[in-house]
Design a protein around this nucleic acid. Sequence first.
RNA 1: GACCCUAUCGUCUAGAGGCCUAGGACAAUACCCUUUCACGGUAUGAACCCGGGUUCGAAUCCCGGUGGGGUCGCCA
Length: 463
Amino acid sequence: MIRTRFAPSPTGFLHIGGARTALFAWAYARRHGGSFILRIEDTDVARSTPAAVQAILDGMEWLGLGYDEGPYYQMQRMDRYKEVIQQMLSAGTAYHCYTSADELEKMREEQRARNEKPRYDGLWRPEEGKALPRPPAGVLAAVRFRNPTEGVVSWHDLVKGPIAIANAELDDFVIARGDGTPTYNFCVVVDDWDMNISHVIRGDDHVNNTPRQINIFKALGAPLPLYGHLSMILGDDGQKLSKRHGAVSVMQYEEEGYLPEAVLNYLARLGWSHGDEETFTMEQFCAWFDLDHITASAAQFNTEKLNWLNAHYLKQADDSRLAAATVRRLERQGIDAAGFPGLPRVMALYKERVSNLNELADAAHPFCVALHPSPELLALHLTGPVRGALATLSERFKTVDWQAQDLSLAIKATIAEHGLKMPQLAIPLRVVLLGQPQSPAIDAVLEVLGRERVLERIGRVTG
RNA sequence: GACCCUAUCGUCUAGAGGCCUAGGACAAUACCCUUUCACGGUAUGAACCCGGGUUCGAAUCCCGGUGGGGUCGCCA
């Protein structure tokens, strides 16, 4: 049984890198008929917030990444962690350490000054025939894992291949703080064990934690999961993403008018491939997804390609869905679009020309509410001959059959009569009707706008 | 600094020793379509980091260098 998990810490929003990790873990479980588990790693009480938990849940919901189990919260599993720590203490695979945080910091500084790798010096580590110092009064002991000192820890990484790290590179890390709360590297192991996680798919930044975690698994006599480490996503500028540089919430993509299927498809292709396939549904993705075709090196985020994908999915999107999204977006700007019945047809007209929902809403705006063209624009386009032609056209519009073909004939008859070329009338007409010189085919615009609005808007400038 | 990972067009990538005069996509450029702006279509330019091996043959395997990234917390 394949069981994967996504285990974010609730210290901020769900960003693009986390979303991709979740997507891959989710797809792997789906591909193999397994389970995808959501686990909130909230043992850092100082930085975890309920708002961040909600932000992560929101992000996953928007993307449509559903989980089969969870969310589990580590803070609710304290008893279990403490139980395991007691076991390790009595088994001698963990020990109390009374070195204070200040002393540790000082130690690290000195080691760095000597160009050594900063590490715990093992002062409190029990050793055969070694006399331990007397525990200082009033200092709360942290618990450290007694890491093996010899040999190498190796595993076959599902994306990077064989990796080996010498135990000599690892020090005895803290598994429980002075106040008794367990720490990350320890909780992860207990959870992955208890939750029967078979494949740990996570970010590259955890590679160096893996040997430590494997050592704990071994100390506990627990079966090891398989590990796969996904490389980083770099920003559009090639710089690494961080809270102060480029890392944005997936929900910001929603605000910027991206469709979840576009973001998902983009993320899927960032670091994974299936031959030359560029666009695919999540069903196809789940059917194709494998760990063998994941790129081992970091990938640079490319907004232009995301934009292209978004435009691609916009073209395929259902008109009524787009209309609903447009109404919501215009409402945020205080514009009532729900009252305009032609909105779905406006969507059909514009969804092939824009690359996001905000542009679509901007395009729909003048259909719902008359925009008054600027005096400059009117002066530029409404010359004497054009005014005359518009008056003629307006007359024809009063009686014409209101459909694109007939509207087009009315325009053609009018330009012939006034000796104009098509653009000479079509462009001013666009300005009058929509407040801007560009639009889809003018007959289609007229048809969707409706006789009443058209006559009213022409009348406003000619009358 | 130490350790670990990594390296194909500007970007995402295909590529598992001969199929590669290196393929696709985004972006760029040109042209076509056209009732404006877009969409779309066609075409063009654009890459195997460097140096050594192994092999009849290397983008693909090995070693070294260089570049990039990650980690070195009583954060996760």
